[in-house]
Computed example of a mutant assay.
Amino acid sequence: MLRNIASYSTLTLTILTLLYVSFQSNETIDLSKYSTEGLDLNYTVSIDVSQTELKKESNDSFSPYLGKSFVGFKEAIAFKESGGDYNSVNTYGYLGKYQFGTETLKMIGINNPAKFLKNPKLQEKAFIANAARNKWILRRDIKNFVGKRINGIIVTESGILAAAHLAGPGSVKKYLRSYGLDNFADGYGTTVHYYMKRFSGYDTSFVKPNKKAKAI
């Protein structure tokens, strides 16, 4: 009993001593070096954006962690084509998030480019319809060339479909069947080979080959 009392007394005395030393110390923590005064702060969201706008943006945005999924595939192409901007029109007149030409739009049932540009849902349908049509046109080439190496890269179905989106299925056929010698480049110098490489290895099984695919 006496030993326990002595232990508690020693512990209490130690605590009191530490508190006394702490209060007697003149040293203070300088927090001034942590100040943000004078810094040009780079906020990701404007402070005047309403909560409604933030919620809508959150619901409409895709996750950045899409991996090699089909959604990852189409969003990667969209980012390369337009930065993902539905309203984009380039210097050659290609339209929307995926940069469609008017002739390609006609082939998938879209005859009003102005309305197409203002309709994000239609643009998404157009991408899938065009991919399905290209997959049908290139079905034999997909069967014959996927897994082979051309110009140092392994040919994949997603690479073929991406290149067809860039240059049309005819240019992709020429590239594959010439084993890379006929390498079409668009007006900005982007080649079939570049798209075959950049967009290789995605899962495009979602796209079903369809000769008569339409967006409308």
Rank of each mutant, 00 (worst) to 15 (best):
N111V: 05
L39Q: 09
Y94Q: 08
D85W: 06
G93F: 13
K106W: 04
K125T: 09
A215P: 04
Y179F: 10
G147D: 14
A162M: 09
Y92D: 10
N87Y: 13
G147S: 12
E124A: 08
A6P: 05
I153A: 02
D203L: 09
G189H: 10
K56I: 14
I15G: 09
S50E: 11
T190R: 11
W136M: 06
P209N: 09
K68I: 02
I77Y: 02
E27M: 10
V172A: 03
F116D: 03
G84C: 06
I15V: 15
S178A: 14
Y86M: 08
A132E: 15
V89F: 06
Y8A: 12
A76W: 05
K143N: 15
S61Q: 06
K97M: 11
G159K: 00
A114L: 12
N26H: 10
P169K: 03
M1F: 12
V71E: 03
S9V: 13
G159Y: 00
L39T: 11
D48Y: 08
E103F: 11
K125D: 14
S61V: 05
Q51Y: 11
P64Y: 08
S46W: 07
R149L: 04
A167Y: 01
S35V: 09
G201W: 09
V45L: 14
V21T: 13
S178T: 15
Q51A: 10
T14C: 11
S50K: 09
A185Q: 14
T36P: 01
S82M: 07
S32R: 14
T204D: 03
L161C: 06
L11W: 11
N111K: 06
K118Y: 10
F100H: 06
D60E: 14
N4R: 12
H193A: 14
K97F: 04
H165K: 04
T44H: 09
